[in-house]
C-alpha cells in the first residue's frame, strides 16, 4: 500500500517552473531519498507534501486520502486531518528558541509521560530545561525529530538532515532514521550528500 502518491504534480513560482507532471510514490514503511543538485525543487516538493506550499496542478494522496485532486485542494478541515499523518524535520530545525527543550515538545502536545520517554530514548532527558541555543547541533536535530514525532505521524520528512552536522552526527542520524523506519515510520529524505544517501537503505528518486 502506498503512503504517498503524487500524480502529475506541477509547481511554479510566478513564471518559473519548479517541476512539471512529476510522479512519485512511497510505499508504507519504506525509506525514500530524493536527490538532485540544488535548485531542482527537492525541498519545494517536500514542502508541497507537508502543506507548506500549494501545487498548481496534479493529485496528492496521503495514506489513501486525497489532499489535492487535479489541482483542487480538499476542504481546510480535511486537509488538516490528512496532514496530521505527516511530520517534518526542517533543515534548520526551526526549533522555538524561547522555549526549553521540554517546552518545545509541550507546546505541541502536553503529554508528560510521552515527552519523558522520548527525551530518555533520544538522550535529551538531562537537557530538558536547556534552551535550544545552548544545545549541540546533533541534540537540536534529535529534538526536532522528537518534536515531529509528538503528533504520532505515519510519515516523517527530513529536509537535508546532514547539512549542518559533522561526521559523527551524520552517522547518528543514519542510525536514527533506520531505527524509526524499523518502527514502521515511512521516511522521506531530501538530500544532496551522496555519502549519506549511500548509508541509508532507501529507494532513491533523482530530480533532474
Amino acid at each position: 500500500m502506498n503512503m504517498i502518491d503524487a500524480i502529475n504534480i506541477t509547481k511554479r513560482f510566478d513564471n518559473s517552473m519548479v517541476f512539471e507532471n512529476l510522479n512519485f510514490s512511497v510505499e508504507k514503511g519504506e525509506i525514500v531519498t530524493i536527490v538532485g543538485s540544488s535548485g531542482r525543487g527537492k525541498s519545494t516538493l517536500l514542502r508541497c507534501l507537508v502543506g507548506l506550499e500549494k501545487i498548481d496542478g496534479g493529485t496528492i494522496i496521503i495514506d489513501g486520502k486525497k489532499l489535492v485532486e487535479d489541482g483542487v485542494y480538499a476542504k481546510s478541515r480535511d486537509q488538516s486531518k490528512i496532514l496530521s499523518e505527516v511530520g517534518i524535520v526542517f533543515q534548520n530545525y526551526n526549533l522555538f528558541p524561547n522555549l526549553t527543550v521540554r517546552g518545545n515538545l509541550e507546546i505541541v502536545k502536553n503529554d508528560g509521560k510521552k515527552i519523558d520517554s522520548l527525551l530518555r530514548r533520544f538522550g535529551l532527558y538531562d537537557r530538558a530545561s536547556a534552551y535550544p541555543g545552548k544545545i549541540s547541533g546533533g541534540q537540536k536535530q534529535r529534538l526536532a525529530i522528537i518534536r515531529a514525532m509528538m503528533l504520532d505521524p505515519k510519515i516523517i520528512f527530513f529536509d537535508e538532515p546532514t547539512s549542518a552536522l559533522d561526521e559523527d552526527n551524520r552517522g547518528e542520524i543514519v542510525k536514527l532514521i533506520n531505527e524509526l523506519n524499523s518502527e514502521q515510520y515511512t521516511i522521506v529524505v531530501v538530500a544532496h550528500d551522496m555519502q549519506f544517501v549511500d548509508c541509508l537503505n532507501s529507494k532513491i528518486y533523482e530530480m533532474q
Partner: peptide, 18 residues
C-alpha cells in the same frame, strides 16, 4: 511560522507563547 503550521499549534498559543 512554518513549524507552527506543520505542528498544528493553535493560533492563540502560537502568538502568546512563541
Amino acid at each position: 511560522f512554518e513549524s507552527i503550521k506543520v505542528l498544528k499549534i493553535s493560533k492563540l498559543k502560537a502568538v502568546f507563547r512563541i
